[in-house]
Amino acid sequence: MKDNSESIFNMVLASTVHDMKNSLSMLGESLNLILSQVDPELLDEKTKDYHGVVQYESARVNNSLMQLLALYKFENEQLPFNPSYHNLSDFLEEQKLRHIPLLDAKSIDCEIDVDEEIEGIFDECLLSTVLENVIGNAIRYTKSAIKISCSQQQNTVIEIADDGPGYPEQMIVLAGDYMHGINQSTGSTGLGLFFAKKIASLHKHKEQIGCIRLSNGGELGGGRFELIIP
């Protein structure tokens, strides 16, 4: 039977995550409540900015937590993987809903372009975590708009596009191949893309394996993230 210390660590990990998540939830909600009580006329740009910062950063911390936890489980063959049929329109609408406070705070336009009927086969929970990170990043770097779209031929391709400066060359080439050191200017560790690639690769069908692809340009002229699952 497995070592007892491992299961103790698991329990500590789980309850710490629970605790941290509660704190983060409180941060976000408290701020929303405070702001909702202030007359919108009185909110200057700077305050709105700070609102955006709190939302964004706490969402980032939360998301990083989730990814770390998932990666830890993945390494220990303890990551539950439950693929099922899901309506993509519903799924992507929900992903947008998660970010509404931030989208509103920064006045970013978010369009969803998905056929209402199409379904994909994926683990809803894991893809949620991936997209939360990607969309969060898009919001951070975009100028004014984000577009979430999905198309389906042989594979299901979910695309997140923004009209920001786009991805640096290095990122496009590596595309999650390994986690590089902390990029001083952006604070990015590459965790998000590393995680996205791992989760994508869990989705297999016959010889096809899921993957991610980064590019620049696209419809909105900024960065483009594609998640391709069979």
Binding site: L69, K73, P80, N82, C125, L126
Partner: peptide, 10 residues
Amino acid sequence: TAENTTAMVM
């Protein structure tokens, strides 16, 4: 839930 719910779903 605070964690990945998949395990519970299964």
